[in-house]
Design a protein around this nucleic acid. Structure first.
Lengths: 210, 210
DNA sequence: TAAATGCGGTAACATTGGTTACATAGTCAG
DNA sequence: CTGACTATGTAACCAATGTTACCGCATTTA
């Protein structure tokens, strides 16, 4: 655990903090598709990502979802942080996008370290900043762009976090993430294929040139 | 200044912190319509609202705006907080919705107090939590609701923050905040009037029963 | 192998909301 | 009072996208 921790966090946290993390943290391996947090749940610990990707979703009244953003190595869930502190319920759902390794920190340490370690404070504030900016970008995407551009942005981001040109999603799954219908996605993907931007197959899609 | 500060923040901050705020803070009165922050600007101080309302906006590539949320008494701008710390540029624009009183805190104190005062830490985290939730609600509104519902929500919120049933906005101004066109707003408002929900006049609109 | 199920393609249609255009009426400066 | 300007009302039209329906094909299961 200590080595993996150092690889992702060694350059931001001082040694004293790193060893505290090793002491109180719990190492976890999460399989792809595992639901890490559900809307309305109370949260008792906070994740530090070592590797992998977690996708964070918002839900409407009917239970349909919308992808907010991905969390990656070296990041944490800001929503969780405040939920921990304030004993509030989660506003979002979090699901492992791929197999993911992380360290869970008990909620109490969060407050303690904020007073004690400057590097932890910086990390926490940096996290908030990044998450708010990602929320703003998601908001931009929904408010200012049309579905074809949103789809393109989605594919680019998906390629980036999964680090592969081949996306193994059904059209229906993509439609869920973008809060639209399968037909709309099929239509747009077909258009992109005709423009030579992607290659379509069953249960997969290959990025050529977005 | 000390009295107004105590009225809004006396119950959250301890006395030592309150007197530090009085020492280093600058009291400001901001007139309605004053632009307090512009996108791309660097921020050197952080506002604590004493009274009034500040509206926070996001902008698209063409310069058209979208209302994100309002800041009120006892609140601060989380965007500013992280911008201060990280020396980052502002991602948003902030404009006084009505005449507003606030105290500006120099950026340096922010970090210092976070280590020193538990009540300040709580305030900062609480602020982040509230702002993120407001961003999520704005996002819900745009992603999940149609324009008629968004307009209704907007009017309810506007009535709340301005504490009056009469809204002195033109249809064009409402359209800006909701990132749509004047014609769309006029159309929907007229429909609401026919349903007896509002009363329409030139340069004003009265809420009857939303 | 037959049937059921899941995935994707596509047409036809409905709805929302954005656009353009123009009319009417209030307001204000001269 | 007149002309200019601003706010609003409204019709007609268009584009984006959501909806429904049905197809063929691939995969899985009985």
């Amino acid at each position: 655990m200590i080595n993996q921790l150092k690889e992702s966090y060694g350059h931001i946290f001082e040694d004293a903090l790193l060893s505290e993390i090793v002491q109180v943290g719990t190492f976890k391996e999460i399989p792809e598709g595992f639901k890490m947090m559900e809307i309305g749940e109370y949260v008792r610990s906070m994740p530090l990502l070592i590797s992998g990707v977690i996708k964070v979703l918002r839900e409407d009244n009917e239970g349909d979802e919308l992808l907010l953003y991905y969390l990656e190595k070296g990041e944490t869930c800001s929503m969780t942080m405040t939920c921990c502190l304030g004993q509030k319920q989660s506003e979002i759902r979090a699901i492992a996008e791929i197999d993911t390794k992380l360290i869970m920190i008990p909620v109490g340490k969060m407050e303690e370290w904020t007073a004690k370690y400057k590097s932890w404070r910086n990390f926490v504030f940096e996290s908030y900043h990044n998450r708010i900016n990602e929320l703003l970008m998601t908001l931009d995407s929904i408010a200012f762009y049309q579905m074809d551009e949103r789809l393109t942005q989605y594919l680019i981001e998906k390629v980036r976090v999964n680090d592969t040109d081949i996306i193994n999603s059904t059209h229906q799954e993509i439609a869920y993430d973008l809060y639209t219908s399968r037909v709309v996605i099929s239509r747009l993907l077909k258009k992109m294929e005709q423009l030579g931007k992607i290659e379509l197959g069953r249960n997969y899609l290959k990025i050529i040139n977005l």
